[in-house]
Amino acid sequence: MKRLLIFFTWLWLLVPIIAESQQVRVLSEGLEFKGDLGSIQRKTVILQNETNQVKTYLLKNLRGNIGSSQRVRVCIGDQCYDPKKDLAKIKFTLEPGEVLTDLYLDFDMGIAETRGSFDLSFVNESNLRDLFVVEASYEVDDPIKVDEFDYKDLVLSDVYPNPSVRMAQFDYNFKNKAVKAKITINSFIGNPIADYELDPERSTLAINVSDFNPGIYFYTLFLDNKNIVTKKLVVKK
């Protein structure tokens, strides 16, 4: 009986910790950096404050395996920081219910072909039990490899993660900012679902697929209204 009482006491004490860990949701799942030697990629970290309170978070630490020639930077808007040196400067505030899209990770692929993973832990400045983790992986390739998505006017990544549960992302880079580019999404039987213009001033398109029915979809890249390529996107729940 005494052991049972101790167990329920510990369970009761853990309830606030478990609840608080759910207060901010990372909507951008498993960031993946894939590219050639010497290139730099930027990924958007999408966060949502699911509470009715204003919350301010600081970067607590960077953990994982980053190659000696690779480098990661945390950017808030136009200001970027080295997480190994500028922990105290990496700070942002989330309003109640806010979805934050101005937090980025810049990853320098370096000069050595390699792969690895790392994560960033953020903590509430007024409550150390309120924290969340952003996970990322990287793969640096030989630049001789041909990228089938490297077109005359635009470089476009595959959609990721694929399959996707909440958010699906594309990374892109305009070679010709005068071209009009868009991504359209159609159902498995060809019914139009949505279309998205690619902004030349940004490098990531994030799509909320949480309202999509589970199944197979197809996305198509159009450049100046010309169909360039069609690929498959899988949505799961």
Score class of each variant (00 low, 15 high):
residue 216 I to Q: 02
residue 202 R to C: 07
residue 82 D to E: 13
residue 60 K to G: 09
residue 34 K to L: 02
residue 233 L to M: 15
residue 206 A to P: 02
residue 133 V to N: 08
residue 222 F to D: 09
residue 167 M to H: 05
residue 115 R to W: 03
residue 89 K to I: 01
residue 69 S to E: 15
residue 42 R to P: 05
residue 139 E to T: 01
residue 116 G to I: 12
residue 210 S to H: 08
residue 177 K to Q: 14
residue 61 N to G: 12
residue 59 L to T: 05
residue 29 E to C: 01
residue 218 F to Q: 08
residue 176 N to Y: 01
residue 103 L to H: 04
residue 218 F to K: 05
residue 122 F to Q: 11
residue 48 Q to G: 07
residue 18 I to G: 04
residue 35 G to D: 07
residue 112 A to I: 04
residue 202 R to Y: 03
residue 57 Y to L: 04
residue 197 E to A: 15
residue 187 S to P: 00
residue 205 L to R: 10
residue 197 E to V: 08
residue 230 T to M: 12
residue 174 F to A: 11
residue 48 Q to P: 04
residue 168 A to V: 07
residue 111 I to T: 15
residue 163 P to N: 04
residue 59 L to C: 04
residue 191 N to D: 07
residue 70 Q to N: 14
residue 64 G to D: 09
residue 213 N to G: 15
residue 178 A to N: 09
residue 16 P to R: 06
residue 206 A to V: 02
residue 164 S to N: 00
residue 19 A to L: 04
residue 235 V to M: 12
residue 9 T to M: 06
residue 108 D to A: 00
residue 72 V to K: 03
residue 87 L to A: 13
residue 9 T to D: 05
residue 41 Q to E: 15
residue 213 N to V: 10
residue 233 L to E: 11
residue 41 Q to W: 10
residue 236 K to A: 08
residue 227 N to P: 00
residue 155 V to A: 10
residue 201 E to M: 13
residue 185 I to D: 05
residue 221 L to H: 01
residue 237 K to G: 08
residue 31 L to Y: 08
residue 65 N to C: 01
residue 44 T to M: 09
residue 214 P to A: 05
residue 32 E to C: 08
residue 11 L to C: 14
residue 122 F to N: 14
residue 57 Y to E: 07
residue 174 F to S: 11
residue 227 N to G: 11
residue 3 R to G: 14
residue 216 I to F: 01
residue 90 I to C: 05
residue 60 K to W: 08
residue 135 E to K: 13
residue 86 D to A: 12
residue 203 S to E: 05
residue 112 A to E: 11
residue 233 L to A: 13
residue 158 D to M: 07
residue 82 D to F: 07
residue 118 F to L: 10
